[in-house]
Structures are given as structure tokens and as C-alpha cells.
């Protein structure tokens, strides 16, 4: 599996670290909304298909990336820097 880092270009997956589901919305640090925190920590879509994910190019430029990966085929559909803060759009 290759992930194309926006800075480094295509690299083997071994250079990357999975940082989790990219669909999560972290509540404000002061939030006492337990449902929101519960959803942030536990609720996952677990789709069989395109999935928004956060990866870090930990063995390369160390940038955090938004990656859309198909969980059935491992096809990587898009990559972008995460620093913009915007979610990557899925194909669907």
C-alpha cells in the first residue's frame, strides 16, 4: 500500500502511522457535554468503503495528513495536509 504524501510523494505505508478516524469532532476542552465526549471517544462509523482517516508521515516529513482510504480495497483516494483543519470529502 502506497500513500502519496503531499510533500514527499508516494511512500510505502511502513513510513506512516495511523492516527485514527478522521470523522471525529473533538469537543471544546472545557465542554462538559458527556454525550459529545462519549461520541468523540467511542462512536465510529466503521464503513465498508471510503473512510476519512488521519495519518502521520512519521517516517518522513512528519506532517499529519487527511487520507481517504477504501477499507475494502485499501485504495487511497486522496491525501491532503491536515493542518488546514478541513475534512477531506469522500467520493460518495
Amino acid at each position: 500500500m502506497l500513500i502519496t504524501c503531499p510533500y514527499c510523494g508516494p511512500r510505502d505505508v511502513i513510513e506512516f502511522t495511523y492516527q485514527g478516524d478522521g470523522n471525529r469532532e473533538r469537543p471544546q476542552p472545557a465542554s462538559q457535554n458527556l454525550d459529545a465526549w462519549n461520541a468523540y471517544v467511542y462512536d465510529r462509523l466503521n464503513p465498508a468503503g471510503d473512510h476519512n482517516e488521519i495519518w502521520q508521515h512519521s517516517g518522513g516529513c512528519r506532517a499529519h495528513l487527511r487520507v481517504v482510504r477504501n477499507t475494502l480495497t485499501h485504495e487511497v483516494l486522496s491525501t491532503a495536509f491536515a493542518r488546514g483543519g478541513h475534512k477531506t470529502e469522500s467520493r460518495s
Binding site: C8, R11, E15, G59, G60, C61, R62
Partner: peptide, 10 residues
């Protein structure tokens, strides 16, 4: 320049 690693040696 390139950033990569060899057996976890950056």
C-alpha cells in the same frame, strides 16, 4: 532533499 528512514533510523 528527502526525509525517510532505514529500520526506524530517521
Amino acid at each position: 532533499g528527502r526525509s525517510t528512514n532505514h529500520h526506524d533510523i530517521f
